[in-house]
Amino acid sequence: MQYLIQLLISGLAIGAIYGLIAMGFAVIYKSTGLVNFAQGEMTMITAYIAWTISTTVSGNVFVVAIGAILAAVVLGLVIERLVMRPMLGEPVFATVMVTIGLAVILRSAINFIWDAYPHGLDIGMGRSVVHLGGIGVRTGQLAVIATLLLLLAAIWAFFRYSKVGVAMRAVAADDRTALLMGISATKVHALAWAASSLIAGIGGVFFALSYDLSPAMFQLGLKAFPATILGGLDAVLGSGLGGLLIGITENLAGGYLGSGMKEVAGFAMIIVVLMVRPFGIFGERDIERV
């Protein structure tokens, strides 16, 4: 039983990171109809910036957190303004190719700006091991699960009650009507990129805290993308939950079927789910996009 619980906890912890990055995918897709193939790289850049702040400015958790949040938001806004906005009105294929190009540039930036060595993000917390009923877990892993749950609740409330959230839903549902009502699609796009970068960046920072930073970290995006597909490409909350499902499935498969099955299990589950629900577990049958 302890073996199973350990697998579940580890699965939830890595799944929460996938979930946060998957939510980043969904936020952009829901608002712009675009799949951002640079999501993993944006996540990695935010984590590296957090590490730089911790090693050069201060290792204080609040300084690092505020710095990383600002950096993630600025990164999202800059990419939207300089790279994505000029692509407005261009074919979706061309826009998607731009995100692929962006991914390659951001990936290479790691070696140019930082280096190829792995690094540990040390902010004085998150790396210690606590034992819950004899099961070892890092405090950072507990924190990322809690953060995902809090963010899920916050995002639900944001879309349900805030004016901006309602505006974003309006643009996603019917951009022309939204435009007639005075809602700027451009502003909504910029907000979506900033929010996506921030949410995924939080996942990246937690990954760096619980595991380590390395130039291979962009691959988290490849693991999180199936979570988005599973939860629903247009379902922000569903994508978060999709991440948890992928994390748990991977770990159970790895623990009971063998190491080789770990990477396969999540994708096998997606194939089965998509055969039944092609729009994902929580996705809408007809996806509206701006």
């Binding site: 073996y3 350990q6 697998l7 580890s10 699965g11 912890a13 890595i14 990954f207 595991y211 291979a216 970290m217 691959q219 988290l220 991977e250 770990n251 159970l252 498969a253 790895g254 623990g255 063998g258 190491s259 080789g260 770990k262 990477e263």
Partner: peptide, 14 residues
């Protein structure tokens, strides 16, 4: 393990 794997929790538990 598959090249690029980053989480080894289930492997080390085994």
């Amino acid at each position: 393990y598959k090249k690029g794997q980053q989480d080894f929790s289930s492997d080390m538990l085994q």
